[in-house]
């Protein structure tokens, strides 16, 4: 009855197996090829179709819990947008996203951010805007009522870029890094829906893999034009950036580890079911 024993493992053995097997590709990367999905191309092509000087909003709506997924997505995209000469209005509708967003911007613009020459004209960081979806709607209707100052306390009216961007009407692209509510659905409802719909304000989303299935109806309806799906999406975008520019591709080992983890979970399900089948057909519990 050795097989029956395997199907009755203590949960701690499962934990150890997971820890052990996921560690292997991190220490010795498998260097698996990365296929790029159509959802990722949606983000890439939309961003590429923008012309220099267009205004993009970059919204950090995630907390620490999804940093491994959302952060590399946002960093790669901001890099892309900067290379294309887009002007970026960065902000956060999640309180937790405020400091993280600042950190991401420092990764891309250098550790001196915001003390860089292009601050105020090419890029601004408004920081956390309170009020969740209400804050989103306020920002879309009138950027100056949404918040009095940027993240650092400079009045919004003193920033040249924000003098130009008075509402969502002047925004050409909305990049949403999300892991919950408020997220892409709230942007669609309270910003895009009120300001000309998908044709006037395309939305690209980088999301934790949990929420991606739920946003597919909006993708199919064209309300969202591209999605970066979790860690895989981040890796794919980094890959595209490293092909086009000199951008480091860092998610390789992580994606290898993800592959191993997925196979392991499928094996767990299979072994668990084999045990179930044995018990069922040997007349045990159902």
């Amino acid at each position: 009855m050795a097989l029956e024993k395997i199907t009755h493992l203590d949960r701690r053995y499962i934990y150890i197996l997971l820890f052990f097997f996921v560690s292997i590709p991190l220490l010795a990367p498998l260097k698996l090829p990365i296929p790029i999905s159509e959802h990722t191309y949606g983000v890439y092509d939309t961003t590429n179709a923008m012309s220099a000087g267009d205004v993009a909003v970059c919204s950090f709506d995630f907390g620490p819990a999804t940093i491994p997924e959302n952060r590399p997505q946002a960093a790669a995209w901001i890099f892309h947008a900067r290379e294309l000469g887009l002007r970026i209005v960065a902000l956060a509708f999640w309180a937790g996203g405020g400091p993280i967003g600042e950190d991401v911007l420092r990764d891309v613009y250098g550790s001196d951010f915001p003390n860089i020459p292009e601050y105020g004209t090419e890029v601004v960081y408004l920081g956390y805007i309170p009020g969740n979806e209400v804050g989103m709607q306020t920002f879309g209707d009138n950027t100056q009522s949404a918040k009095g100052t940027d993240h650092y306390g400079t009045p919004i009216g003193d920033l040249p870029l924000m003098q130009e961007v008075t509402s969502a009407e002047q925004v050409d692209l909305w990049a949403e890094w999300t892991s919950g509510t408020p997220g892409e659905q709230q942007v669609i409802q309270f910003v895009q829906g009120r300001h000309g719909g998908p044709s006037a304000l395309p939305i690209v989303v980088g999301s934790t893999a949990v929420s991606v299935p739920g946003m597919m109806p909006f993708y199919a309806a064209g309300q969202i034009v591209g999605i970066l799906n979790g860690l895989a999406g981040a890796g794919e975008y980094e890959k595209l950036m490293s092909n086009d520019y000199d951008y480091p591709f860092e998610q390789g080992p992580g994606l290898d580890a993800q592959s191993v983890a997925h196979v392991l979970v499928i094996l767990f399900v299979a072994v668990g079911n084999i045990g179930y089948a044995i018990r069922r057909y040997s007349g045990g519990e159902s």
Binding site: L9, I14, Y15, G63, P64, A65, G96, L264
Partner: peptide
């Protein structure tokens, strides 16, 4: 914060084995 949330990875693996 990240570590507390990543505990879910273990629970989900264990659930895959026991509950599905």
């Amino acid at each position: 914060d990240m570590t507390i949330f990543s505990l879910l990875a273990f629970f989900i693996a264990s659930a895959a084995y026991r509950a599905f």
